[in-house]
Structure formats: structure tokens, C-alpha cells
Amino acid sequence: MDGTDDSATPARAGNRLHAELARRARNIRRHAVRMGEVQGQGYVAQALGFADVLAALYFQALRYRPEDPAWEDRDRCLLSMGHYAIALYAALIEAGILPENEIETYGSDDSRLPMSGMASYTPGMEVSGGSLGQGLPVAIGICLGLKRKASRSFVYNLLSDGELDEGSTWEAAQSASHWKLDNLIAVVDVNNQQADGPSSQVMSFEPLEERWRSFGWEVRRVDGNDIAAVSDALAAMRELNDPKPRVVICDTRMGRGVSFLEAREKTHFIRVDPHEWALALDELSEEA
């Protein structure tokens, strides 16, 4: 503050961590855009919106071994919304679980990176998620199994705001608090978008914090594009000493990090013109 060297203070260390997470998030965005370019389409806007959360997960929260994706003591990270596969592949590539050169096979015949995430295809993909609303119920069982094994691993279930429409999500939410699953951390991407339009219009879902809280969950709601806020919330959830499941609700902006996509009219499938992939990569380059 007054001339003393504070590089070793927690605040400084925190800043360095957040800068590193921001760098990771930008790389995740780049990988996702490059995959989108391979197919000329994909859920790129979702990936851009969710990249900060994925960076906080894969570079701060999760325990894993890149060379051994099935390591018994890893934290389990379930992609319930399988159509976000492009986002998770990007994170798995950045985490060294998948090789970067597979980007060019994205979504192609016989690739390990199909457009919808499937456990049987891809190392690091814990569950098959194309049928929405199944992740949280599966997470319940994984949490119960880990507890039976006295494992200290956490289970992170990533889900979308559209999945809040499914009864199975709330059946599982009730089950999680009944079973006192303190090894469960749900992460909800609230991008206010689903297939037919803005989620708030398709099926109103607020007040979200109160809803989860009333189901017996510990709740944090953060700006999902504020990496510091996301990583702090995840840390708080891990450290919480209370026998209940936890949820981090992340409000995100689709297309985040690529200004012209962030500004574009929001749809489930964002339009990206052929020349725009290169522009997007430019904007995400290290110099930018």
C-alpha cells in the first residue's frame, strides 16, 4: 500500500491466478472457434459464453491427471448439456487431456469429437449428455458411489438453464439434499437462451437462488464471465463445511470475447459467416 512490497500477499497471488485463468479462458475460446470453423457451425456462442467457467474449473477447481483421464481420485466433471461438447473439448484440449491436433476432426465422420458429447467417444467426457436433464440424476449416483468408496473426490455437474425445465433436474435436486451430498457441486450456465428463444420467455425460471435454496442447496450466484468471481465461488463451495449439495449459478453472455458475436441477435444456433471465423480468432489472439 505505502511502498511496501506486497507481491507475496494473497491479493497479489489472487491477481496472478486470475490473469492465468483469463489466459486459459482465451485459449479455450480459440480452440472452440477453430472447431466451429472446421464445420462452419456449432454451438460456438455457448462455448464463448461458458469459457470463463470452464477455465476456472479446469485450471483451479478440478483435480485431474491429463495423462490419465480415468484416474480414480480425479474429480468428476459431468457435461450434462451434451451440445456444449465443443466447449468441453476446448477445455480438455487446453488441459492437455485431448491433443490439439484433433481440432481438425471436430464433428467429422469417425472423429473422437462428435458434435454431441458422448462418454464412449472422448477421453475426459464423463457422461453422454445429448438427452438433457440426465446429468444431475447421474451425478447423484456417482456421489453416492464415491461416498461408499470413502473417496474425497468432488462431482461437478455442468447444466444449462434449459435443463431447469426438466422435472428430472428437480427430482435430482431434492434427492441430493436428502442424501446430504456435500461432494456435489452443480454449475448452471444461465445464458438465458434455449432452442425456441430466451429461457425467461420459454419457461420462466426465476427466482433461481430461492428455488435451489428451498431444495436444500447452498447457493452462490455470480457473473459467469467474471473469472475471479467464478473461481472464488467454486472455492467457497469446496470449502463449505456443511452436509449439503452446492450450486454455483453463472449468468453468462453468449458469444463473450468476440465482440461482433456478443452483439449479434441471440439464437440457439448463432450465425457465423464464413469470413468471420478468422476475425474471431484475430480478436482472441494474444496481442489483442
Binding site: 472446421v38 462452419g40 458434435m115
Partner: peptide
């Protein structure tokens, strides 16, 4: 490497 758009699992 496949010609991408014709071979998409979209």
C-alpha cells in the same frame, strides 16, 4: 482429413 461440411454429425 475429410471435406468437413459434407461429413458433419450436426
Amino acid at each position: 482429413k475429410p471435406a468437413p461440411k459434407l461429413r458433419t454429425s450436426a
